[in-house]
Design a binder for these strands. Structure first.
Length: 556
DNA sequence: ATAGGGTTAG
């Protein structure tokens, strides 16, 4: 009898078990009457949770008479991980009225749930309970709090918690560094790194990941390379997370050569690293290469996940080619993930962008479970085809279904207004987005609205909107406005806008082309010539278009 | 014999 129990313990101490193995273990435990010991129940519920068998996990939980804190935490965590937040919170409430009191790990589970649910209000409530329960300065809770606030874009609140801890441990340092990292605050990342080292902490692979994520500006490419070198020196290059984040950093900087070089050195790149490289090709408009690498990955018999399938579908959508898109659709069906929300949404987008809106709508209708992402895909597709009324209807359905619209929803709606030239509706959605839903207007919202106003000839209003941003407007906004000035032949404003544009992006050739069109349209040959002289290395591009415009204006 | 918190692509 002793031998099988020892074997059982060794099976239970593994990190993963298949569902059938778990069921066998469960039966065995019941037979040997070990099921009263909460240790066994905890391990089993963990295995059930890994296999997405929450019902079995919950039944097990209900049948276990003595519930240890471990068992409570593992079941709460299981629900939180499957994004069944209300169940997780309900269990937490049950726990509060039970004999077992929550510990720091219980709170950490809930805090993570809040950040994954993107629910700032709940985060603040749980934060309050944490403080009241006396865990405000606890290292586990504070690192969970710091990362939760950071992930919801509240680096300021995260830092307040961080600075309240006198002697942060490595995990807390890492949480704060990646908090600043994902908000792109490189200055703060660097400052923290220096401070942590003066306090005698040595960075680990988590620190590196946070650091590298903070490198958002392409001017930091040299620093990225030296961090890469440092990772090699310290042996962090055997860490999958470090490698994937390095590949996506090089992709972000459009240095696909470096990304490939790094990728090729890896003996066993994991799925995330493959994905980082494939989306890197997409981001640099090398969609065909993205699809080639997807094929290559499959040949190495790696099983893709819904996120990767969604991103190759996006690559195919960008090429507006139906064939590879269909192939990937078939592939998704064969792998049983075509009904996944992420994949379905990408399919809607792909079919619409490839000219088959009807197929996209069909996919949407067939989805067993919809979320805001799928509605966003549908709304933007309808908008793309100029079907603004239908897009607006879908927005009403979003509200009716109780989903919360996000920034992408409004970008899609504004895009629909833009295509259908519905100025008043666009103004109204822009206002509601900010006032009613508290969503911060981002570059894409401004681009759509400025374009919408500009095309309708409301150039002054469009210009004022572009100037109303708290920070200098992105070049895409000025670019859109410049085109509108050109079509409405307002050369005076065009000049002002062009100046704003050059301030934001002096080197970009396509804007010079636009400006040269404006000058040519206005018959200002001297300015066209100056621009040409300025742009020596752009052979052919500017002169060609400008001369063509010039000919037109000469004829007049 | 004894478990759980912090990092990654979209």
């Amino acid at each position: 009898m002793l031998i099988p129990v020892r074997a059982l313990v060794s099976e239970l101490s593994k990190t993963h078990q298949t569902l059938s193995k778990t069921k066998n273990l469960h039966a065995f435990i019941i037979k040997t009457q070990l099921s009263n010991d909460p240790f066994y129940a905890t391990r089993l519920s963990r295995f059930y949770a890994i296999n997405n068998e929450l019902i079995s996990a919950h039944q097990l939980f209900d049948k276990t008479p003595q519930r240890s804190i471990y068992l409570w935490n593992s079941i709460i965590r299981a629900y939180a991980k499957s994004h069944l937040f209300s169940d997780a919170f309900a269990l937490f409430r049950r726990m509060l009225s039970s004999e077992t009191k929550p510990d720091s790990f219980s709170f950490a589970c809930l805090l993570r749930a809040c950040s994954e649910k993107a629910d700032l209000n709940w985060l603040r409530i749980v934060h309050g309970i944490v403080v009241v329960s006396g865990f405000g300065l606890d290292s586990i809770c504070s690192s969970a709090l710091v990362s939760a606030y950071s992930k919801l874009g509240r680096a300021d609140e995260a830092s307040r918690i961080f600075y309240g801890i006198l002697e942060p441990d490595l995990v807390l340092w890492n949480s704060m560094i990646s908090g600043y990292g994902c908000s792109g605050n490189w200055y703060k990342v660097l400052e923290l790194l220096k401070r942590m080292r003066t306090m005698g902490m040595s960075p680990d692979s988590y620190t590196m990941v946070g650091l590298i994520m903070g490198l958002t500006d392409p001017s930091l490419v040299r620093i990225g390379e030296s961090i890469h070198g440092y990772c090699l020196k310290c042996g962090f290059d055997s860490n999958d997370h470090v490698n994937s984040v390095l590949v996506s950093m090089y992709s972000r900087f459009k240095s696909l050569d470096s990304a490939c070089k790094l990728f090729c050195c890896l003996s066993q790149p994991d799925l995330v690293t493959w994905s980082a490289l494939i989306t890197g090709f997409s981001q640099t408009e090398q969609h065909m290469l993205a699809l080639d690498f997807f094929k290559k990955m499959n040949m190495e018999s790696k099983k893709p996940d819904p996120i990767l399938i969604a991103s190759v579908l996006a690559a195919s959508a960008q090429m507006a080619m139906i064939k590879p898109g269909c192939e990937i659709h078939g592939y998704a069906i064969r792998h049983g993930c075509d009904l996944d929300v992420m994949v379905s949404s990408a399919l809607i987008d792909m079919y619409a962008k490839s000219g088959f809106l009807e197929l996209g709508i069909q996919i949407f209708k067939n989805m067993p479970k919809k979320n805001i992402v799928s509605y966003n895909a549908l709304i933007s597709s309808l908008g793309l085809y100029g079907l603004a009324t239908e897009a607006f209807q879908m927005f009403e359905e979003v509200l009716l279904e109780g989903f919360r619209p996000d920034g992408t929803t409004f970008a899609a709606l504004l895009g629909a207004c833009c295509h259908a030239r519905l100025v008043d509706a666009g103004r109204e959605y822009f206002r509601r987005m900010k006032d009613e839903f508290g969503i911060l207007a981002e570059t894409e919202h401004y681009v759509h609205t400025v374009k919408l106003l500009g095309m309708a000839g409301e150039l002054k209003e469009a210009y004022e909107l572009a100037q109303s941003l708290p920070q200098p407007a992105d070049s895409a906004i000025w670019g859109a406005l410049l085109t509108c000035c050109d079509t409405h032949e307002d050369y005076e404003l065009a000049e002002i806008v062009a100046e704003c544009l050059f301030k934001t992006k002096p080197g970009k050739s396509s804007y010079r082309v636009m400006l040269s069109n404006v000058y040519a349209g206005d018959g200002r040959w001297k300015d066209v010539q100056n621009l040409r002289a300025d742009t020596g290395n752009l052979k052919g591009k500017i002169p060609g278009i400008s001369w063509f415009h010039g000919m037109k204006s000469l004829k007049m």
